[in-house]
């Protein structure tokens, strides 16, 4: 009996060895990053290295805010993520519902044209988007960050697929109760589409938080930068102070990781859904 148990467990044992090694490769860099972030510059550049800091220099974290306007960059990033996500959820869901359920002339053609935006790499529209922002006098503003990005062909497509898969009975019932198209969309379908909205919301927050090229191009004043661009600037000006740069990177990373740890299942399901439907 005991031998049989061990034999059954054995393959799992091999799997665990590989997965633990893999997890270590994924997590150790972050642990090393954290340990560096609380060392003095001397200790961080000492050969051979110390693993555990002899002295915990927490001021590296506050130093980040002295060297660059990191608090402003933080605020910019949070606002950018919130407005871009809220805008996409609203506009994409509205269009997605109409494309999925309302019948109007030209629907298929208009949808196909919108979908074509999915296949275009950003470099192909960034130049022109930049010129639009410049023409509006919006360079170095918050609205330059979010204006183009509150519209999304991907989000519209993802939510449309979601609406199409919802049962039509509820909608019919609401229609017989005298609800108009807008009420059905707003009161009936949006609540039903919550898993799809959550998935799109998560993906959009991650995208906004990570975005580098667009913010780098439109907002070049430190006060208007996002965290990703701030990190690049810090790295460029300040290459040798590794502990402070590591602290800055961790401060920028922390919120999304915390959100992920609390909403782990939703995030993973959201990504999986975008994979199977997008």
């Amino acid at each position: 009996m005991g031998a049989a148990m061990i034999r059954l467990r054995l393959p799992h044992c091999g799997i665990h060895v590989i997965l633990i090694a893999g997890s270590a490769v994924m997590l150790a860099p972050f642990a090393w990053q954290f340990l560096t972030s609380v060392k003095s510059l001397n200790e961080a550049t000492q050969v051979p290295p110390t693993l555990w800091p002899t002295q915990w220099i927490w001021t590296n974290y506050s130093d980040v805010f002295i060297h660059i306007p990191y608090a402003m960059m933080y605020l910019n990033t949070v606002l950018y993520a919130i407005i871009r996500t809220a805008g996409q959820l609203l506009f994409c869901s509205a269009a997605a519902y109409a494309f999925a359920r309302l019948r109007f002339p030209g629907r298929g053609l208009i949808f196909a044209v919108c979908l074509s935006a999915l296949m275009i790499p950003p470099e192909l529209f960034i130049l022109s988007q930049y010129q639009i922002m410049k023409g509006l006098g919006w360079l170095n503003t918050l609205q330059a960050l979010f204006t183009p990005t509150i519209f999304s062909a991907f989000g519209t497509f993802l939510l449309r697929q979601f609406f199409v898969s919802l049962p039509i009975d509820v909608e019919e019932a609401a229609r017989l109760d005298g609800c108009g198209p807008f009420q059905i969309y707003w009161r009936v379908m949006l609540p039903l589409a919550k898993p799809g909205l959550v998935a799109l919301g998560i993906l959009t927050v991650i995208a906004a938080w990570s975005d580098l090229l667009w913010p780098l191009i439109v907002n070049t004043q430190p006060q208007k930068m996002t965290l990703a661009v701030g990190l690049a600037t810090l790295q460029g000006e300040f290459t040798v102070n590794y502990p402070v740069i590591m602290a800055a990177a961790l401060i920028a990373t922390a919120p999304l990781v915390l959100v992920f740890l609390f909403m782990h299942r939703r995030v993973v399901e959201g990504i999986a859904m975008s994979g199977s439907k997008g």
Binding site: L19, M26, Q33, L227, A228, L256, H264
Partner: peptide, 19 residues
């Protein structure tokens, strides 16, 4: 395990580059 492999996905690439 799944969380461990997933953490770099939610880390901004700029921070990954720095790291």
């Amino acid at each position: 395990y799944r969380a461990a492999f997933f953490i770099p996905v939610i880390t901004l690439p700029a921070a990954i580059g720095v790291l």
